[in-house]
Deep mutational scan, measured.
Amino acid sequence: QAKEDFKKMMEEAKFNPRATFSEFAAKHAKDSRFKAIEKMKDREALFNEF
């Protein structure tokens, strides 16, 4: 479920497709859906799949 929420957050964010993961992470670090994925490498993997 956390992965689905994370993907939904990325869809809602409508970020620049050229944005890096660190830019995305800095902007969304306080979002509970971002925090729900415990490991940063897992967050980055989901970001890269998107």
Rank of each mutant, 00 (worst) to 15 (best):
A29M: 11
E12R: 01
D5Y: 03
A19M: 15
K35A: 13
R43D: 01
T20Y: 01
A26L: 10
E44Q: 08
P17L: 07
S32M: 12
K27I: 14
M9W: 00
F24I: 05
F24R: 01
S32G: 11
K30H: 12
D31L: 00
A19R: 07
F15I: 15
Q1Y: 08
A2C: 03
N16H: 10
K35S: 11
N16A: 11
K7T: 10
N16C: 12
K27C: 08
L46E: 02
K3S: 08
D5F: 01
F34M: 03
Q1L: 06
N48G: 05
M9P: 01
K30R: 10
S32F: 06
S22L: 11
K30Q: 15
D31G: 00
A13S: 15
F6C: 02
K27S: 09
A29K: 13
K3C: 00
K7R: 12
F6S: 03
F21L: 03
A25D: 06
E23R: 00
E4H: 04
A36E: 05
A25K: 06
K27L: 15
F47C: 03
R18Y: 13
A19F: 11
E23D: 12
F15L: 15
S32H: 12
K30G: 14
K35C: 14
E38I: 05
E12H: 02
E23V: 03
D31V: 00
K14I: 07
L46P: 03
K35F: 08
A29L: 08
A2W: 06
E4S: 07
D5I: 01
K14P: 11
E49W: 04
E49D: 11
E49Y: 05
K35D: 05
R18C: 14
A45Y: 05
Q1C: 15
F47L: 03
A36C: 09
K41V: 12
N48I: 05
F6N: 05
A13C: 12
A25C: 14
K7Q: 08
F50T: 00
E44D: 01
R18V: 13
F24E: 04
E12Q: 05
K3R: 13
F34D: 02
H28N: 08
I37D: 04
A19S: 13
A36Y: 01
M40E: 13
D5N: 11
A26M: 12
E11C: 07
F6W: 04
F21P: 02
T20W: 00
M10P: 03
E11M: 14
D5Q: 08
F21S: 04
A36M: 05
F47E: 05
D31M: 00
E23M: 04
F6Y: 10
K7P: 01
A19H: 12
K30I: 09
F47Y: 08
E38A: 14
K27A: 15
R43V: 03
F24Y: 01
E38Q: 12
N16F: 06
E44V: 10
H28M: 15
R18Q: 14
A2Q: 13
A13Y: 13
E4M: 04
E49P: 01
T20H: 05
M40S: 12
F15Q: 11
M9F: 03
F21K: 02
A29P: 01
F34L: 02
E4G: 05
D42I: 04
K35Q: 14
F6L: 02
E4I: 10
F47I: 01
M10T: 04
Q1H: 03
E11D: 11
F15P: 11
M9A: 01
E38D: 13
F34S: 06
A36Q: 08
A2N: 12
F34R: 00
K8C: 07
E49I: 03
D31H: 00
K30A: 15
K41L: 06
D31R: 00
K35H: 12
A29W: 08
S32P: 14
E38F: 04
F34V: 03
Q1T: 06
M10K: 01
P17N: 10
S22F: 06
S32A: 14
K39T: 10
D5W: 00
A25Q: 09
A45N: 11
A25H: 04
A45E: 13
R43F: 03
M10R: 01
A25P: 00
E11R: 10
K27E: 12
F50N: 06
